[in-house]
């Protein structure tokens, strides 16, 4: 089976243990596609941050991890979404040191720096964050 044919992983997020499942799945796909150790750690940490946010702020959600490699690039696409109350002020949430829960305030802005593409949409009906890691073959 070719790598690009691997089915996408869909991980439901309900409790802290699911954070571990999600980041392990991300790391494994990373490894299978031949990303280096630094990239594996980068993605695993990013997935860890985003999924933990879901558990902490929205209680439930899901994490989809897909291999979107092309002929020229290897590419991992991850989407973390929830039906929580959403982020009131996106600009603030993406600012270093800002946290509504007494955290470090490095999660979202830090994750944005960790990955190659970062897209966030948040409404009062929920939040959807997409991150992408790419590397030329």
């Amino acid at each position: 089976m070719r790598m690009s044919e691997l089915p996408p992983a869909q991980i439901p997020l309900h409790e802290t243990a699911d954070v571990v499942t999600a980041r392990r799945a991300a790391r494994e796909l990373c490894e299978q596609l031949g990303f280096g150790k630094a990239d594996q750690t980068r993605l695993a940490t990013a997935v860890s941050e985003l999924t933990r946010n879901v558990i902490q702020y929205a209680n439930h959600g899901e994490c989809v991890i897909e291999n979107r490699s092309t002929a020229t690039h290897r590419c991992i696409w991850v989407q973390v979404r929830d039906q929580g109350a959403g982020i009131a002020n996106l600009e603030q949430a993406l600012t270093d040191g800002y946290s509504t829960s007494g955290g470090l305030g490095a999660g979202l802005p830090g994750t944005r720096r960790l990955v190659d593409q970062f897209h966030i949409e948040s409404t009062p009906q929920g939040t959807c964050i997409t991150i992408v890691l790419t590397k030329p073959l």
């Binding site: 980068r42 490095a106 830090g110 720096r113």
Partner: peptide, 10 residues
């Protein structure tokens, strides 16, 4: 890798 990630996270 951990050190790199930590600094990127800030």
């Amino acid at each position: 890798e951990g050190a790199q990630t930590l600094t990127k996270l800030g």
